[in-house]
């Protein structure tokens, strides 16, 4: 990582988009980096489009506004590609980490895919019928950026979730870290 990293999460209300950014910020702070995490608030509700943000930096973070030009975009729900523009403002050399099964999507950026839904179902990380893909995606993000380490991520997960839920999510990020595919940028 250079001096700072800006990550934007896209998902739907109920998927844990906000928690994903929070856990990432906690994991980064375990490595003595500065971090901040916050969502866009408004008419948030189950199923609605949700954005959250995480800044990680070696120096104090002084920006408080939403991330408009992220280094990385994490997409928890691939259907969002069709109904909105989660890639807006992504830097030219930016990365996309997406919950995706099968042949990789062509999005014009360096892309990392992981079948997070599959991993969540496999581990029975399901609540009210919704696969909990938020933490699973963090494993793929760590694979894509190297920040923070998988170990720190697992420690942060342990702090956020107690008991079985914590263990399942730790297992989930191990699996997603292994099963993340890197797709080189497809130049049109």
């Amino acid at each position: 990582m250079e001096s700072s990293l800006e990550i934007r999460f896209h998902g739907r209300g109920g998927q844990g988009v906000v928690t994903a950014a929070n856990v990432l910020a906690e994991a980064a702070s375990l490595e003595n980096m500065f971090s901040s995490a916050f969502p866009i608030y408004g008419a948030e509700r189950r199923g609605a489009e949700i954005e959250s943000y995480c800044r990680i930096s070696r120096t104090q973070i002084r920006e408080t506004s939403p991330i408009e030009e992220p280094d990385v975009v994490v997409i928890l729900d691939p259907t969002l590609l069709k109904i909105s523009n989660p890639l807006r403002g992504l830097r030219k050399d930016g990365k996309v980490v997406i919950n995706w099964k099968g042949a990789s999507p062509s999005v014009g950026f360096k892309t990392y895919t992981v079948d997070a839904t599959g991993i969540a179902l496999e581990l029975k990380l399901v609540k009210s019928g919704w696969p909990l893909v938020n933490i699973v995606m963090l494993g793929a993000l760590v694979k894509a950026t190297g920040v923070p380490s998988l170990e720190s991520l697992k420690m942060a997960i342990g702090q956020e979730f107690s008991g079985n839920l914590g263990e399942l999510n730790k297992r989930a990020v191990e699996l997603s870290f292994e099963r993340t595919f890197e797709v080189e940028q497809i130049v049109a």
Binding site: A25, S29, S35, S36, A37, F38, P39, Y41, I61, T64
Partner: peptide, 12 residues
């Protein structure tokens, strides 16, 4: 403190 910007932003 600024609502949301401080109240809901997690940081060190």
């Amino acid at each position: 403190m600024d609502g949301f910007i401080l109240s809901h932003t997690k940081t060190n």
